[in-house]
């Protein structure tokens, strides 16, 4: 396990024509032991730069990166190489050695660390077992599928028993199903090996499936950070809202919208209720209908999972006298539900 602390980190690239690109600005993060921490952002936001600054593949312009209490920005190169052995990394493009077999690739970090051959072989076998590739040990990477290559990448990253695993878009080159199995594997090793994982992605799906906490990076700054549940239920920034929308499509489907007619008597309002975890089980809606005398027309509902917590949304049309609707909405808000009033029909 490892803790990672990033303090007022910035990175400026100087380009050949003399201009400067501010890739990161005033980044502060605190990642505790054993957490799966996601960093999401659009292309060019600075995600890769940020994760590469953690193991000094990219030197931060200012700021510090403290892994397990050690400031990596201050280490001389030899000590930095040793520190890097405690930090595994996997990549979007896998970056396996094409001249080595699967077993040879996994053995690479061990050979570099000068571990004796017999011990290497034993450890490589265990790792290949863990990622489910034991029978591919003597195959060259060219003969593997993308998902298998990433499994080799993961086994290789874990070979030197790191306490921190950095993942730069580990599933972006994979199809959705393979993505699922790789994410599952990452989650498994996080639990089994008590490994801290930092994962960079532009896919909210990845965050939703395995991350505990997430930071949203936009135009070189972290604009929002918090627990994944919080970001999903109450995104604060436009960027975060867009990302949430990309995986939780809570918009009312077009056919529902078209077939919907406002009631002939009384007023109506559309409200969207989001509920997390336990409150999903309470009979909130029926209580509301009974107590406030409004009618509720269910337009659209959906239940999803964030990591393993159920997360649901329900779009209702409340019909009745304005005062009753007002009271009903007030009641819903008091239930610690997340309420959004979508429209007010006259």
């Amino acid at each position: 396990m490892a803790t990672v602390k990033i303090e007022s980190l910035s990175k400026v690239y100087s380009t050949r024509d003399g201009s400067q690109i501010q890739a990161l600005q005033d980044i502060n993060l605190d990642i505790p032991d054993g957490e799966i921490f996601g960093i999401i952002g659009l292309s060019g936001a600075g995600k890769s730069t940020l994760i590469r600054c953690i193991n000094m593949l990219e030197r931060p312009t200012t700021g510090r990166v403290i892994v397990d209490g050690r400031d990596l920005t201050a280490l001389p190169s030899k000590e930095l190489r040793h520190a890097r052995r405690q930090i595994g990394m996997i990549f979007q493009q896998f970056n396996l050695l094409s001249s080595r077999t699967v077993a040879g690739n996994v053995a690479f970090p061990l050979e570099i660390a000068g571990i004796p051959r017999t011990a290497v072989r034993q450890r490589v076998n265990n790792l290949l077992d863990m990622v489910g590739l034991a029978e591919k040990a003597d195959v060259y990477p060219a003969e593997l599928s993308g998902g298998q290559k990433q499994r080799v990448g993961i086994a290789r990253a874990l070979a030197s028993e790191p306490r921190l695993l950095l993942c730069d878009e580990p599933t972006s080159a994979l199809d959705p199903q393979t993505t699922g199995s790789i994410l599952h594997l990452l989650q498994e090793i996080n639990k089994k090996l008590d490994l801290t994982i930092i994962i960079i992605t532009h896919e909210m799906q990845v965050i939703k499936e395995i991350c505990d906490r997430v930071a949203v990076i936009d135009q070189s700054r972290i604009v929002e950070a918090g627990s994944v549940l919080d970001i999903f239920t109450a995104p604060q920034t436009k960027t975060a809202r867009e990302f949430v929308k990309s995986v939780l499509n809570t918009a009312i489907p077009e056919e529902v919208r078209q077939n919907h007619r406002p009631p002939e008597t009384g007023e109506s309002r559309l409200v969207r209720i989001s509920f997390i975890g336990r409150s999903a089980g309470q009979p909130v809606i029926s209580t509301m209908i009974k107590e406030f005398g409004v009618h509720a027309n269910i337009l659209f509902g959906k239940i999803d999972h964030i990591k393993s917590t159920p997360f649901g949304t329900l779009t209702l049309e409340l019909i009745g006298p304005p005062a009753d609707i007002e009271a009903a909405v007030g009641f819903l808000r008091r239930q610690q539900l997340n309420i959004e009033v979508l429209s007010e029909n006259e």
Partner: peptide, 19 residues
Amino acid sequence: GVIEAAQAMGASTWQIITR
């Protein structure tokens, strides 16, 4: 990226050249 992967694993310049 392949060279960077080796750097990230803590390989020295000489190890990167030879391996």
